[in-house]
């Protein structure tokens, strides 16, 4: 299958972090070191959920200096398509699983003088590996981390204990919010901003920074979107001659893969651009959910990102 090379791993540890988040540690089945990665990288976890194949991207949160294992933290999404529920309910220590090689779409720009990090909820995970990396190299950073309340602030204690003067926490339940304009206005020239969290937060941070004169090249964000659940629809694969039905809880990419057609992907979250596919005809409407195509490209309707986007109201014909 497409995507990057696979790693055969065994689940070494499953640790509940709080009511919603569980941490998983994976080690190579043959005991070797895992491939090196850099802070901000993610891996795609393959799950065999009782016959349904699920591939979900998760940021690596462990120290990039430690190649004896990879750690991820998964937030349970009870209304999601089932990947996070599978991880929480069925993944146990000792289980054999398959991960993709790490891919970094949210790497630290090593030219920056300082890193301003803004995290919301489970969006903290890429920052954990980035901060571990910066702690080794002595890089300057400042983290602003918002969570619903202290109990759901995963790894807040650990971060505040290790970096008391660099980590600032905020709790939605207490009505606390980062004073973004103030924080943005006092960053030394050469600072790069990294934001990861819910969609609304990312849009607010990037929009405010841009209005305050931060150039786009200094702004970095990451949000993996889970493929949204939608109405079933029909797709014709022009190159391979298949006609398929895409189920309500299935992504277009998953449907293509289930039919045995090899389709490219990397992130499976609408962020990397790898799965871009030409639309040959669409009788209905394209429902774009990705971060990759520009708004103009989305409006033109000549391309689709099958990992997260769908169609509705008529047949879709794509070049695959």
């Amino acid at each position: 299958m497409s995507g990057v090379a696979k790693l055969a791993v065994r689940v070494a540890d499953v640790v509940p972090v709080n009511d919603l988040v569980t941490r998983f540690r994976f080690e190579a089945r043959d005991g070797s070191l895992l491939p090196a990665f850099s802070g901000g990288a993610h891996t795609v976890v393959e799950m065999d959920d009782h016959g349904t194949r699920r591939l979900n991207p998760y940021s690596l949160m462990s120290d990039p200096g430690d190649r004896s294992g990879y750690e991820i933290s998964v937030r349970r999404d009870d209304a999601g398509r089932g990947g996070s529920l599978f991880m929480h309910r069925h993944v146990r220590p000792g289980m054999e699983m398959v991960l993709s090689h790490p891919v970094n779409l949210f790497g630290l720009d090593s030219r920056a003088r300082k890193y301003l990090m803004i995290a919301g909820g489970i969006g903290i995970t890429p920052f954990l590996s980035q901060i571990a990396q910066l702690s080794r190299t002595g890089g300057r950073f400042e983290l602003h981390y918002a969570a619903r309340n202290p109990a759901l602030g995963s790894y807040m204690d650990r971060l505040q204990a290790a970096h008391p003067d660099r980590v600032q926490c905020y709790f939605d339940d207490d009505g606390q919010q980062i004073d973004l304009a103030r924080v943005l206005s006092r960053q030394p020239i050469g600072t790069h901003l990294y934001v990861c969290g819910p969609k609304g937060m990312i849009a607010w941070v990037l929009g405010t920074a841009e209005r305050m004169g931060w150039p786009p090249q200094s702004l970095h964000s990451e949000e993996f979107i889970a493929p949204p659940v939608g109405q079933p629809f029909t797709v014709e694969l022009a190159a391979s001659g298949h006609t398929l039905n895409v189920g309500a809880a299935q992504s277009l990419l998953e449907a293509i893969e289930a039919s045995g057609v090899d389709a490219p992907y990397l992130c499976r979250g609408g962020a990397c651009g790898q799965c871009e596919t030409k639309v040959i005809r669409c009788d209905g409407q394209l429902l774009h959910n990705d971060h990759w195509l520009t708004p103009e490209e989305q409006a033109e309707g000549r391309k689709i990102m099958p990992c997260v986007s769908r169609a509705a109201g008529g047949t879709l014909v794509i070049d695959r």
């Binding site: 720009d109 030219r111 920056a112 003088r113 300082k114 030394p188 020239i189 050469g190 600072t191 790069h192 150039p215 786009p216 090249q217 200094s218």
Partner: peptide
């Protein structure tokens, strides 16, 4: 000199 601060040269 500006680039040496970490400011993106393309900006």
């Amino acid at each position: 000199d500006i680039m040496a601060t970490g400011f993106p040269f393309a900006a």
